[in-house]
Design a protein around this nucleic acid. Sequence first.
DNA 1: GTCTATACGCCGATAGAC
DNA 2: GTCTATCGGCGTATAGAC
Lengths: 203, 203
Amino acid sequence: MDQEKDTPAGKHDTQEKILLAALRLFAEKGYFNTSLTDITRAAGLKSPQGIYHHFANKHAIAVMLYESILDNLNVSIDDIRRKQQSAADQLRDIVDLFFRLADEAPEIMRFLLLLRIEEILPEQKKLAETAAFIKIYKIFQYGIRSGEIRSIDPQLANGYFFGVINNTLRMALDGVLDKKADAYLPQTWLMAWNLIAKKSSCF
Amino acid sequence: MDQEKDTPAGKHDTQEKILLAALRLFAEKGYFNTSLTDITRAAGLKSPQGIYHHFANKHAIAVMLYESILDNLNVSIDDIRRKQQSAADQLRDIVDLFFRLADEAPEIMRFLLLLRIEEILPEQKKLAETAAFIKIYKIFQYGIRSGEIRSIDPQLANGYFFGVINNTLRMALDGVLDKKADAYLPQTWLMAWNLIAKKSSCF
DNA sequence: GTCTATACGCCGATAGAC
DNA sequence: GTCTATCGGCGTATAGAC
């Protein structure tokens, strides 16, 4: 959300408030159930007009949210890719990040996991086509080449692995699990990794 | 979709056409991107007025679709539960059904997997609370009691298992996999089942 | 039961004062 | 840059003829 240069603060406060309010509402009620009036109120403004000084329209709010979330994710993935060697370590760090986000910034995780982007922003790239997720895909390709991951279609490995991870996160976000997401991290990681790892430990 | 008694046919033809058109459009563009005019055209009617002879409003179309799909699913689950004994066999039959639906009636699978019901029909039961999915949940409870499935939270077992299954189906529906869903059934079933099975074969 | 025509409301968006 | 007031359009829904 901090894609702007660090101005003395105060200038872009309102824009930030609008984005945060919109994120919360979109994640909770969905894009189409959220009116500009809703966002106005949630952002503490008195008139929808205030929004038009920062964004061309409602659509532009969603676009900036989407880009900003994926930019930040992309930076995090870069950090992970830079510091780690093995595919297992890289994936583990990504899973850590996702579980942490689910607990600490659930709206962001909801935005990523629950909203159907192509329904809201048909002209934007689909999730899987964004830089961040292409890099994740490459980790699977690399893991297969290096022998850490079984020799299957990397697309499938990706789908199996994040099928387990994301569905667990979805349950946590929906509140069907009693503890916070982080409590399920170790066991879920093991499940997902052993699913695709070559030398799956039989425990 | 055949929740009406088998009348001589002709009477409920229009209603059926409307439901099928709506299903297709909702699955493709989403509920909010679909106007009654869209449904009118797709159903081969000349005026939106025709719809109001069969449904109170747009909302009622979605409700009937949702109920009808889940009723049919519930019946199928009943059949499966009646004829099978082991949890593995029952789950295998359900997975077969889902993969078959993904290939033969993709709109139904899209409706179930992609649409966020609580965003469209907030007053309706969530998927997990419907009869069909409660019965599926009970298969996991049973499998754990009978020793087929590991001793973990049945909710988690359910989530892990269908995380793999549903994500594979999602990929197939999104067209990121080159073959039809059915081609991935055997391997995906094995993956998902071994993930939760007690005596996981190490292959 | 299906058409034509039309009413109504909400919400996104604009004009213009301050 | 934020307010008050207002427009315009789309999409749901209704009235009423046939």
